[in-house]
Design a protein around this nucleic acid. Structure first.
Lengths: 195, 195
DNA sequence: CAAGATTCTGACAGTGTATGTCAGTTGGCA
DNA sequence: TGCCAACTGACATACACTGTCAGAATCTTG
């Protein structure tokens, strides 16, 4: 009567092992200095198996990045409809920045991205995908169906804010309260930069 | 009395040959389907030489991307000082979008980026570098020396606008006047998205 | 519970990008 | 003319990633 079969349990276990070993090695010797061979030999799987779980070496670092977008979209859809799209986004991103579990993963990841250009590049690529989906979601919420470009601008601006805020925060994490800082950035951008 | 030596002339010539051959092959068979071996055998140089001129295969497509930033910074520095930073940027980017020579290169490049994810990723990486430099330049122009974050937000917003605008423009180049469209986007973002 | 279908895995081979090294050549320059 | 520096090609190599295929493990059905 096992709901989840042994096969699926093994899958998540293998994935976890690879992820744990890889992240540990990355932390110990750096991302670039760590090879797939090293990871798989410590994780006791074949190189081929690694790529069945992760499309690229970079994706191990950014494993939970995709889930993050799902959370954003879900939170967004549960915001009250009378709210403006911008306000909804501000609230969603503020909430996200407040989650301690999420924040604890953010710092090491930010550090890794700063030292490994390929990881940084991959994260930008993923975020570009988010931007499109986010814009689509905003467009669906918007009252003005003829305005095609504002949602795109809002999505681009929001993600740009998050990047800038997280970068600044990761450089001096002690001095800054991330949720408030994000809030302030959203506010400042919405007030414009003078005409 | 040759100002520029034969050696340097050969260098630019070699670079041009590689670039021309590569871009032609990319257009003919696609970016991913073209190998370095193909390029260098047609250009009659060794594979090693290719990488002396271009760090990555992607960089051939984005060859004049770096110059673009220099132009932006230069144009920015020659704007009148009484202008707000945002206004200056709007003018600079509008001017850039008006240059027909630049625009003619933009369309095929946008197409290439749409079909070759690695080229797109590389362009995002380069733009991230721009963002930092642009923010620094804006900070230098700003009157308020205590405000560290606004320049970063402005830079992120401006580049985000350009990406969104160019994407939209490249999808339907005939229907949109790019300079005006860019202008409108800058305007709309600066007016905020409602409180 | 046995047998077949399905899925996961490892082993092997191969492609393509990118880098290190080093000797040979070529252009700059006194 | 001859020395110095830069450019180049010819190796050799590392590493990420993909295709294939047979065998093992798990699930499923009679």
């Amino acid at each position: 009567m096992t709901q989840i079969g042994l096969r699926d349990r093994k899958k998540v276990r293998t994935r976890r092992v690879i992820e744990d070993v890889a992240l540990r090695l990355f932390a110990e010797q750096g991302f670039d200095a760590t090879t797939i061979d090293q990871i798989v030999s410590e994780a006791e799987v074949s190189p081929r198996t690694f790529f069945r779980y992760f499309a690229t070496k970079e994706d191990v670092v950014l494993a939970d990045y995709s889930e993050q977008l799902d959370d954003i979209l879900e939170d967004l859809s549960s915001r009250p409809f009378q709210e403006t799209p911008w306000e909804s986004m501000r609230a969603v991103f503020r909430t996200m920045a407040s989650d301690p579990g999420r924040r604890s993963k953010m710092l090491p990841r930010a550090q890794m991205m700063a030292n490994a250009p390929s990881v940084f590049a991959r994260s930008l690529q993923l975020q570009a995908g988010w931007e499109i989906q986010l814009a689509t979601a905003l467009r669906a919420r918007s009252g003005d169906k003829t305005d095609e470009i504002s949602p795109a601008l809002m999505a681009a601006a929001a993600l740009g804010i998050m990047r800038a805020a997280i970068r600044r925060w990761s450089e001096q994490a002690n001095d800054i309260d991330l949720p408030e800082f994000v809030d302030e950035c959203f506010d400042r951008l919405n007030k414009g930069f003078g005409s």
